[in-house]
Amino acid sequence: MENEKYIHQWMNDELTSEELESKIGFKELEALKKLSHYTTHINVPKENSEEAFQNFQQLKKHKKGKVVNFSVVFKVAAAILLLIYPTYYFVTQNNSTTITTSIAETKILVLPDNSEVVLNGNSTISYAENNWNEHRNINLTGEAYFKVAKGKKFTVHTQSGTVQVLGTQFNVQDRTGFFQVDCYEGSVKVTYQNHEKILLPGKIIQILTENKIQHLTTPNKKPSWILKESSFNQTPLFKVIEELEKQYDINIVLKNVDNKTLFTGTFTHTNLEIALKTLTIPLKLTYTINQNEVIISK
């Protein structure tokens, strides 16, 4: 029992380590010190009193002098949400309209507020008709040209980003690995991941990947595909080829050609031969047509 008394004294800083060592021996002192050493490094909470007090004030306000058990509040809220959400989802999503175009097909449609959408080939849009005048939300995959009637905020959601406007004309293209918005009138807000950009008339934003964002300009008043042609401004060749394949429903094979070569120009949607010439001649390439397959080579 003697030793224990000394250890308690040491624990209370009433006995130095040297004194304790003389009582209990080096080995035991070391063991005690090691135990202490590692105990002091246990991770203790780092909450800050200011923040905690703010939260406490909130609790205090909710019930005068009585604190609500937070976890209970959350459980009740979660239960209510669980009950309400499916109904809400059912009501809002039930009457959504979906329009799809196949390759080399365009469709013109008029939205409930008389806004116009021209849907390019191989694209889909969907929107909910109820509440349309309150929330003009459109989901888009592919490419579409919008002529928006004046009114509440109009939002186009795509996988790559969102585009917001009040009343304007603009074109959105969201294809795999390629997101481009052209603004023709008014102004347009483009949100891509963390980037936000306001486009003015005649401006284009082209996003290949997060780090490759290009700002371009266009002299056109409408996207070229509306005029039955496609125009490109310093666009990588593989994007041009993709567009060509879509417009003519053909398969194009590149032989010994760098598909990242930049192309600037326009091709028509009405004649494949002419379109291929406008693409290959400036790039000093040749082409051969085999039914539905086109081979482009040097």
């Binding site: 029992m1 003697e2 030793n3 224990e4 308690h8 624990m11 209990i24 080995k27 063991a31 005690l32």
Partner: peptide, 18 residues
């Protein structure tokens, strides 16, 4: 003190008391 002694014992210090 009593709790402390118990705690040290439970932590199985090589230190054997008395």
């Amino acid at each position: 003190e009593k709790h402390m002694s118990e705690a040290l014992k439970n932590l199985q210090l090589k230190t054997k008391f008395s």
